[in-house]
Amino acid sequence: MLELGQNAAPAADLIKDVTEANFMADVVDASNEVPVIVDFWAPWCGPCKTLGPMLEEAVTKANGAVKMAKIDVDQNQQLAAALAQQGLPLQSIPTVVAFVKGRPVDMFQGAVPASELDAFVKKVIEAGGGDASGGLDGALEAAEEMLNDGAVEDAAQIYAAVIEEDSNNAIAYGGLARCQIAVGELDQAEAVLNGVPAEISSEAPIEAAFAQLELARQAANSGPLDELKAALAADENNHQARFDLAGALHAAGQVEEAVNELLELFKRDREWNDGAAKQQLFTIFDALPGNDPVVLNGRRKLSSLIFA
């Protein structure tokens, strides 16, 4: 099950264990995109065990405006020595160093209160030219990109953080539900959507997520493509086979093909099964962005059939 909320594991794209092998890529190079806060720690260090989780929480709350790298100095002694030679005071730990545009810009040593960590993170974000106020729009864009790239847990972490900041953010609720759908946790997705505040329950992102949930439940019961194609080939007026084929095609990611089968079914018998073809088309359209070519072409073709 995908765990969400404050008790979720750190987002892999935001918080990483870094070694000498990937220090350049995940700290120096990455800091050209967003600031990277590096936590130098060791397993035997008591203050490190206190500071680390607090710093992870502060970074996660920044909604992608800053990243964190964790470096075990015992396991990366050569790296620590090389950085010390370049002027970083790593004789005591924990030591926290912020990198912006490939260079260290700020640091502190020892455990500090959560309020100071939040202030440090805010200062680092501003040093990198970012929006330290939360930047919810930017966070939502980052989460959507993560979800599209398959980084579902990372996206869910950000959507959950946005909801904590703005409990009426329909985009965040819809995105969180879509994360659950993406990992097959359909009941969890339904629980997220059922928990949406009433005043935003009819907004487009919520309706889109409900549509995706309905399609996902249908996909779980869809039949084999080859058998459905064979049944339709044997009888092109087998409306149930065509309808089921559309569902199987959608489940297989062939959305445009699914829409075409439903359009064909509507053309042959628009009243079949209480207008099931049109209803299913609207469900697919609602689940997709309004500017998706499949939606635009599908709606145009459906309209031409309705008014023919």
Rank of each mutant, 00 (worst) to 15 (best):
C179K: 12
F243G: 04
P197K: 10
V28F: 03
A189K: 11
I181M: 10
T95E: 13
V183Y: 00
A11C: 04
A170I: 01
K61P: 03
G110P: 00
T95F: 03
G64V: 07
A248V: 07
A277N: 10
L55E: 06
Q218W: 10
V294N: 14
Q85G: 12
A58D: 00
T19Q: 06
G195S: 03
L302K: 07
E257T: 13
S304C: 02
F266L: 09
L136F: 06
L186I: 00
N63F: 07
S303N: 12
K123H: 08
G138W: 03
Q157E: 08
E33G: 07
V196R: 13
K301I: 06
L215I: 09
E185M: 00
R270D: 13
N169M: 04
Q218Y: 11
L245R: 12
D29C: 00
I37A: 01
D226A: 15
V28H: 06
N76G: 11
Y159V: 00
Y159N: 12
R299Y: 03
K123R: 15
T283A: 01
Q75S: 14
V105T: 15
E164D: 13
A9C: 05
R270K: 14
I284Y: 03
P53K: 03
A209F: 01
V96L: 06
E264D: 14
E214T: 08
N237F: 11
Y159R: 07
N221V: 13
A277P: 08
D17F: 11
R299H: 01
P293Y: 01
D274N: 15
E256A: 14
Q280P: 05
A30N: 09
D137K: 13
P113L: 04
P53I: 10
K123E: 05
I93Y: 02
A251Q: 05
D244Y: 08
S133H: 08
G298F: 11
E271H: 12
E3H: 11
R103G: 02
G247W: 05
K49C: 08
L4C: 08
A191D: 14
P197A: 09
Q240G: 05
G174P: 03
R270S: 15
P197Q: 09
F210G: 04
R242W: 12
G138D: 07
D226I: 11
A11W: 00
A82P: 01
L14V: 05
V294E: 12
E33Q: 15
E57Y: 04
L281N: 03
V162P: 09
L296R: 14
A139L: 06
V162L: 10
G298P: 04
Q212I: 02
A191T: 09
A233H: 08
G174R: 00
Q157A: 14
L55N: 11
L215G: 12
G135R: 07
E207G: 06
N297V: 03
S222Q: 10
I306K: 07
V121P: 09
L88H: 11
